[in-house]
């Protein structure tokens, strides 16, 4: 399998992609990317947030695209087609997570509030990142 573009932020098992965050056992606060060692809730002194898989579906908080190739260290595809980005709200975790959107979707297909599902796909130079895509039935 292709390598992941970053270790420890997401995992792919049996073709199913999960974002990895941390959840504080003391208060339930979730962090993405994972934040071991301390909890960011100012009224929680727990120091043992545990790795947790995040919800795989959420609703679009907002979205955009990059009409021009983003600068390095991004490696744009050649020829370049606009990268679409979506910020997706995960209800259970109470967070919004930004990600690329699968290449079959453009900004014209997206709307605020629509449901998307987590998957993954390759960056132009090979390694995989998490991506937001059409929900599967």
């Amino acid at each position: 399998m292709a390598r992941l573009a970053i270790d420890g932020w997401f995992t792919i098992e049996d073709g199913v992609t999960h974002l990895l965050g941390t959840r504080c056992p003391g208060c339930g606060t979730v962090c993405f990317p994972p934040q071991p060692g301390f909890c960011r809730n100012p009224r929680c002194e727990d120091d043992s947030p545990a790795l947790a898989r995040l919800s795989r579906r959420g609703r679009v908080w907002s979205y955009t695209n990059a009409c021009y190739p983003p600068p390095a260290p991004y490696v744009p595809a050649e020829p370049y087609t606009p990268v679409t980005l979506a910020a997706v709200e995960l209800e259970r975790e109470g967070i919004v997570v930004l990600g690329q959107v699968t290449p079959d979707l453009t900004v014209a297909d997206l709307s605020v509030g629509m449901e998307l599902e987590l998957t993954s796909g390759p960056l132009a130079d090979g390694p995989l990142v998490w991506m937001w895509g059409r929900p599967h039935a």
Partner: peptide, 13 residues
């Protein structure tokens, strides 16, 4: 969602 972050704080707790 603040630049340059990947996610917001969690409002779960």
């Amino acid at each position: 969602l603040e630049m340059p972050n990947f996610a917001t704080d969690s409002s779960a707790a």
